[in-house]
Amino acid sequence: MFLIVSGLMMTLVAGAQSQYKAGDVAADFRLKNVNGETVSLSEFGDAKGFVVTFWCNSCPVVKKYDQRLQDIHAEFASKGYPVIAINPNDKSVAPGDSYEEMQKVAKSKKYQFEYLYDETQETARAYGATNTPHVYLLSKNDGKFIVEYVGAIDNNADDASAADKKYLADAINSLLKGESPAVKGTKAVGCTIKWKKS
């Protein structure tokens, strides 16, 4: 029992330490989108970078940001920074976050961005994601994906019109101007990722 607890603590500590921060090189992934196709960052030949966002169907904070993430994609995909949403939640813990439910949500909300299923949770672990929504803004540099900003979309989950710090949009606009984002990381309340129960 002690060993199990220690093992769990080690995992938690390791998880906390391995969270990507600005300047880190992010891992590519191969994940299935809602159309059954495999998507990887290296396949987006002409993108300048990506808004990799850990996302799901069921989290109320995600729902609050739903339109805002779609707006980010509409504004920035054509400028080279498409949104890539990734659902890492385990369906046995959160049945509303199953692949089939993702397909329904993507269809009913007419998602224009890729919505991928991280069934093994390896990508969420590699990035050190803890909540949904959790954004990792990446820039492409010599075939590598560099983390530029980690955190929240803006500073008011409840009311988009009351958000006066647009962290994500500001960070992307900085990159578009060839500058490094002024704010490289923020923290925000969100739903804990539903990890598989071992």
Binding site: T130, N155, K187, A188, V189
Partner: peptide, 18 residues
């Protein structure tokens, strides 16, 4: 709701997940 202004006051390791 400006979470980034206070989450680290609770604990610097906290990512804001509840």
């Amino acid at each position: 709701l400006d979470y980034n202004e206070w989450i680290e006051k609770v604990d610097t390791s906290w990512q804001g997940n509840i």
